[in-house]
Computed example of a mutant assay.
Amino acid sequence: MTGLVCVVGSLNDDTTLAVPVLPSPGETTLTRGVRLTSPGGKGANQAAAAAVLGAEVAMVGAVGDDEPGERSLAALRDVGVDLTAVAVREDVGTGIAVITVDDSGENTIVVDPGANRTLTPDEVTRAITAASPAVLLVQLEVPRDAVTAAVEAAGDAVVVLNPAPMPADPEPVREVVSRVDVLVPNRSELGRLAGRPEPTDASEVAECVAALGPTGSVVVTLGADGALCFEPGAAPVLVPGIPTSTRDASGAGDVFCGCLAQELARGTGLLDAVRSANALAAASTAHPGARIRADLVDRMSPLAP
């Protein structure tokens, strides 16, 4: 029986622009005439992925009392996410993100948090206490004190932290890392957390993980190279990347985290959960947009290990 996944995080309105190449600093790049507007936000994307895959999901966050907020809520409602703990603010707009995607599928993302900045520790604590989740999934697009409150209120839940986007000063994040069960950084985030350059190979990744000090499990996402899984007392395991015709890599990390949370809520062991998340995240890059669609899951499932 699958337990509840509670996601504390952001809800945004995304505008995705297709460009031949990502612009360099000071450079202007014209789009290919393709503009996609869709609901997004790391928290909402991860909640949607877990729900589409069959988990019972509750979202904790904030939107503005505006059309983007309505779109965000409707999209989550359509896939069965419980929105009881999503606050609607009258005095601030819904968060927005502008995403550029080049011909190779690589992307850049700029986010204005909007209502996401207003989520309070009290709101988070009340929501998690009421939900009593099996898995708590958190990112860093909401205030740091809300993230800390979420971790403190988790109780017996498995706490999964995706430390993105990494703030300019990672020290407050380091204070939280030792209190989570599963940390899911990419290479860049791991390097900054460890106070080291971004690792380029498995040995450097392992050195960075060791430099974090006492932690639970660490799953380092490596993009097209797959993921490295570190569990206490065990040798690290590489889950290889799956070759895919990438159209848009934006949101792949969110699909990974949502799938990982859904599998952990089912009682799946961490390594097998990583294998499933790795397969689905790879498959998701073949489709445009930052959010997995329910009608694509059956098509993606043959890739699962």
Score class of each variant (00 low, 15 high):
182 V>A: 13
102 D>I: 01
234 A>S: 14
129 T>P: 00
85 A>P: 02
99 I>Y: 03
241 G>W: 00
48 A>F: 06
232 P>D: 12
126 R>G: 06
82 D>L: 12
304 A>D: 13
29 T>W: 01
283 A>K: 09
123 E>M: 03
240 P>H: 09
189 E>P: 09
121 P>L: 11
133 P>T: 12
166 M>I: 10
109 I>K: 08
194 A>Y: 06
200 T>S: 11
219 V>M: 08
66 D>I: 03
91 D>F: 00
58 A>Q: 15
226 G>P: 11
247 R>Q: 06
133 P>H: 05
144 R>C: 05
52 V>F: 11
150 A>I: 09
91 D>N: 07
261 A>L: 07
34 V>A: 13
29 T>E: 14
152 E>G: 05
50 A>I: 15
99 I>H: 05
232 P>G: 05
179 R>W: 08
138 V>N: 07
272 D>N: 14
168 A>M: 04
10 S>V: 04
199 P>A: 02
161 L>Y: 12
265 A>K: 09
119 L>I: 02
91 D>G: 01
97 A>I: 02
74 A>G: 01
87 A>E: 14
184 V>Q: 12
164 A>K: 01
91 D>S: 03
234 A>Q: 15
232 P>V: 06
247 R>M: 04
176 V>K: 10
91 D>P: 00
166 M>C: 10
224 A>P: 05
29 T>Y: 00
187 R>H: 11
71 R>T: 05
194 A>D: 03
215 T>K: 05
9 G>S: 07
246 T>Q: 12
107 N>H: 08
294 A>W: 11
274 V>G: 08
163 P>I: 08
88 V>N: 04
98 V>W: 01
259 C>S: 15
170 P>K: 07
119 L>S: 01
304 A>T: 14
43 G>T: 11
188 S>Q: 10
230 F>N: 02
163 P>Y: 14
194 A>N: 05
2 T>Y: 02
220 V>H: 10
129 T>L: 02
245 S>F: 06
18 A>V: 07
107 N>K: 09
287 H>G: 00
232 P>H: 04
121 P>V: 08
83 L>P: 06
236 P>V: 10
24 S>P: 00
10 S>K: 10
230 F>T: 00
3 G>S: 14
